[in-house]
Nucleic acid binder design. Sequence first.
DNA 1: GGTTGCCTTCGAGCGCGCTCGAAGTCCTAC
DNA 2: GTAGGACTTCGAGCGCGCTCGAAGGCAACC
Lengths: 157, 157
Amino acid sequence: MTAVAERLRELVDLYDAPELPPLAGELCRSLDLPADLPAELSIARVAELTGVSAHTLRYYERVGLVAVARSEGGHRVYDRDALGRVIFITRLRCSDMPIQAIRRYVELVNLGEATAEERLALMQDHRATIIRRLQELQAALAVIDYKIVTYGGRCGS
Amino acid sequence: MTAVAERLRELVDLYDAPELPPLAGELCRSLDLPADLPAELSIARVAELTGVSAHTLRYYERVGLVAVARSEGGHRVYDRDALGRVIFITRLRCSDMPIQAIRRYVELVNLGEATAEERLALMQDHRATIIRRLQELQAALAVIDYKIVTYGGRCGS
DNA sequence: GGTTGCCTTCGAGCGCGCTCGAAGTCCTAC
DNA sequence: GTAGGACTTCGAGCGCGCTCGAAGGCAACC
C-alpha cells in the first residue's frame, strides 16, 4: 500500500465511509487506469465506462467542465486525462457540488499552480457543505425513524 | 422523559445524529407547540415561525401538501394542526423527499387508519433512500478530503 | 458505392421546486 | 370613508441539470 493510499484509507476510516465503489481507485489516481484501456476513447465508450450518457458528456463539455479533443472527422476523442476528469466530475456531482463550482475549479486547475490556494479553499468550502448536509440528513433520519417507530402517526405529529 | 421520547433518544444515538434543532420537538409532538401560541395564525405568522415563505406556503397548499382553512374574508387561517404539518413537511423536504411522495403520504393519512401499512412502507422506502444518500455523501467526502490532503492535485487525479 | 449506425451541432424542452408579478380584495387605523 | 398594507388567485417565469430531437456528417462493413 502506498503512502497516498494509506492516507486515503485513514480518511475513509475517519469518516466511517462504506467501501468506496470500484471506480474510486481510478478516481484518486487517474494515471492508474487499467493498462489495457485504449489511449483514446469514443464518447460512447466513455459513456459506457462512466455511466454518464453521451448527451450529458456533451453537455459537460459545452458548459466547460472538460475539454475534449477532436478526430480529423470531428468526432470527440477522450484521452486518459479527459476520462479521469469525467470520473472526477461525476464524484463531485454525486456530492451535489454545483456545475458552476466545478467549472470554476477546472478553470483554476487550467490556470496553473498559482491557483492552488484558491482551489483548496473551494474544496474546503464544499467539504463544509457536505458536512452540513450529512448532519441535516442524520437529523431527518432520526425524525423519520421516530415516525416509523410510532408507525402510522398523523401528519402533524 | 416519556417512553416515546426515550425511543427517539435511542434512535438519535443510534444514528449518531447531532442535537436535533429547536423545532424537532414540535415536529415530533405537534400538540406540544408553545402554549402561548395563538390557536389561529395568519400566513405571514406561519412564514415567520417556520422560515417558509408565504409564496411557498401557498404553493404547498396548492399541490396538496396541507389543507388550510379560510376566514370569512377568504384569508388563510392556520391552526395548530396545519402549523404542525407545515413543520413536518419542511423536515421531509429537508431530507429531499419529493413533493409527490409527501403528497401521497398526506393523502394516506387523510384516508384513515386503514392506510397505516402503506404509510409505513412509504417511510421505510424513504429511509432507505436517506441511508443510501448518507453513504454516497460519505464516499464523496472521503474523495474530497483526499483532494484536500493532496492539495492542488490536477483535475483528473 | 451503399447501407447502417454512431457521430456532430444547435436549440428547444422538461421536471422539479419554488418564486414572482399583476390585478384585485380585505382589514385596520385614522 | 379612505389610505395603506397584507391578503387573495392565477398564471407565468426561473434556475438547475440535464434530456431530447432534428438535420446532417463520418466510418465501417458488405
